[in-house]
Simulated assay, not measured.
Amino acid sequence: MTEPVVLRTARLELSAPVADDVDAITAACQDPAIQRWTTVPSPYTREDAENFVNSYVTAGWAAGTARTWAVRRRRVDVDVHVDGLELVGMVGLEGIHEGAGEIGYWLAPAARGDGLMPEAVAAVIDYGFSLDGPALARIVWRALAGNVPSASVARRAGLRFEGTRRLGAVDRTRRADEWTAAILETDDRSPADGWPAETLGS
């Protein structure tokens, strides 16, 4: 059994989501972009958040096949004293098997544009490749073609673009093209070159 671990960065704390997070998760997942580009249920209900926390998250950590963290931004008061944590997103490794895993993430609208998710993803990648983590050799990213913000995070985290899988994903009820990228334990972690123009929003 794998016990949940806490990861910390300059601005964030990553820890397993718990029952007290259900309302914040429910609220964030009303965002049309999260429902458009991720695999969360649509429409998204409080029961969906409860099932996510109580079933998917706990089972994944227990089995070691998925490790999910709530992305919590530190609130700071005017005197620069830490004043609690605010759940602003989710990041995880899933499908962990034979030295590989897949990274996925979402960020609430109010937290976007400040570089928080690249910071969180970098911490998870470091953990995934570490001896304290799953000690993976490869971490893969997949997204529906057109999800430029997610591609930007992956590129900034050092993942190398590997191609477009034609009709390689299911977008709710229909087949859709899928972008894929990956990073190896031996790769440099700096932003990767070689991503095609369409993934850059140009």
Rank of each mutant, 00 (worst) to 15 (best):
V82Y: 14
L93S: 05
A145V: 15
P149S: 11
S190W: 02
N54V: 00
L116T: 05
A66N: 07
E13W: 04
S130R: 02
Y127F: 14
A120H: 03
G84C: 06
D31L: 04
D114T: 15
L85W: 15
S202G: 15
G84L: 08
S15G: 12
G128D: 01
N147V: 13
A120Q: 04
V91E: 07
I96N: 01
A108D: 10
P109G: 06
A120S: 07
F52M: 01
I103Y: 05
A123D: 02
G99P: 10
A59L: 09
A157S: 12
V6T: 15
T68M: 09
R67F: 07
Q30V: 05
D77M: 09
D114A: 15
V153Y: 01
G194E: 07
I34A: 00
T58N: 10
G101R: 04
I139H: 01
G146P: 12
Q35C: 08
L14K: 04
L167F: 15
V170L: 14
W195P: 04
I96H: 01
L136Y: 01
A120V: 06
T164Q: 09
R74A: 08
I139Q: 03
D187T: 08
W179G: 04
V140T: 14
A49Y: 04
P149K: 13
P32T: 02
F52T: 00
V91C: 12
G128Q: 06
N54H: 13
G133K: 10
G158S: 05
